[in-house]
Design a protein around this nucleic acid. Sequence first.
DNA 1: GCCGTTTTCGGCCCGACTGTTTTCAGTCG
Length: 573
Amino acid sequence: MNKEEIVKILNEIAVLLELAGENPFKSRAYETAARNLERTTDDIEGLVKSGEISRIPGIGEAIGKKIETLVTTGHLEYYEKLRASIPPGHLEMLKIPGLGPKKIRTLFQELKITTIGELEYACRENRLVNLKGFGRKTQENILQGIERVKHYQARRLYAEALPDALTLSSLLSEKLSIPVTIAGSLRRGAETVKDIDLLVATHNPHEVGEAFSHLEPVETVTSRGETKVSVVLRSGINSDLRIVSPEEFPYALHHFTGSKEHNTAMRARAKDRGWKMNEYGLFLGDKNIPCHSEEEIFHHLGLDYIPPELRENMGEIEAAERGQLPKLIEEGDIRGVLHIHTTFSDGSLSLEEIVRMARERGYTYIGISDHSQSAYYAGGLKREAIKEQTRLIDELNIKMAPFRIFKGIEADILPDGSLDYEEDILSAFDFVIAAVHSHFQMKEADMTERICRALRHPDTTILAHPTGRLLLSREPYEVNMATVMAEAAALGKVIELNANPYRLDISWPNLITAKKMGVKIAINPDIHDVSGFSYMSLGVKIARKGWLEREDCINCLKADEIETFFRKMKARR
DNA sequence: GCCGTTTTCGGCCCGACTGTTTTCAGTCG
């Protein structure tokens, strides 16, 4: 059993233990173990064999044994029994706002409720009002919660939530003439988000809460206090506004940016030093240590400033302590854009239009990569079309100099791992992007070998969207990314960070590993139409989340540098 | 269940809000 599956099982055990009414710290121990296992780059099987699995922090004797059992047998009786003891509907019921493990247990013990359907029925029959700890209001809220789960519960893409966040913050900001800051997972650059967190510093909390509740995009107010107002927007997204005093702002900004895991680790660190940390300050006894910015808070705790994207408790605190945080890539570092489709295949922009748009945006080169012949659904290029496009690019390169247009192709990786053209065609391109677009249902070992074989093709420059996932709609195909990344590292091949908001593939946790292995990354917008160029800033945000620096991304190279880079790869064939 | 320069037991981050209570439990982030 591989690492991802074990991580998933440990996390599920944590939730099941909560539902079973176990010691919450035991549940948290499984969460911690899962997280630390997930972020380790060590070979799990190797650690198990050498008896060193407990060297991973948070994994002790008991969990260590369970991991060993999973690795060697693929089963775990403890987990299976635990899962059998909890109705599957209880896991689903956790999604209803206001319902947690305790209330779900009460519902089961008193009313034998095991599914959301039964729960809805029980509410309509008015059966919750007399339960201890419940009441009329709770029953109403649960009914509403069920409605909301049915309609909106889905998480949102970052790119979908950000415009709403910007609208809300600017409306509120204009209304009150005060700054409104976006915090939470949006500030951290999460791929998908559950809600929009906003933060305001003011001495008039009531006025701010009132104004926020009546903004045009707000549909309903779900909770309203002195420091926090929660609403549901017409678009279905939840939004929380936090209101603090100007003095508290830096602490609150840090706190409400999260992540939960980062905050927990930071507060533990403060506690180690005899301090207490919360959204209102950093306290030694009753005395607040004054900080005027997030930077100062980190410095007081002996840390370099940690950019929001890194705050996931993935080693950033340790790195900040050692002064070894990466100098993260910025949008201004990007010199050129690769992976662009034109009207030759399934793009809606002509070559000339793309060149004009790229120049307007300050890029100094682009790389064209239309689909290859077997992608008939996307108008893949036949031999003649390639000739025609080559001729056109040569002309434009003369006309537009010093702007550079590199000739590339997005070649399908066929099921056997070969690429979709003869070598004489492939070797004529400046670069080749290899991509899986079909036959997703393969066994992990076969898919991994298919992709590794494509990487070994002498003409392959970049591996596109390596897991094929579509956020919130399609799971990644089964592929061992550790093996793929190791192969790319050994061969000096590039892996794409596809910046389409639905893909963001390679994922940021894998980026952290790729960087450690020395794999170079191309941040590629996979442009098909005018919106494509705007994906670059999201790509950079995710690259930052994956700890990337300018040196890690090939499209931070200047035009002549990337030309040399492509040539050197060709020379190795 | 994990962990230890407060070590093998007794902690484990912290506060707001809601709805149920009549001082607090549960949930959430």
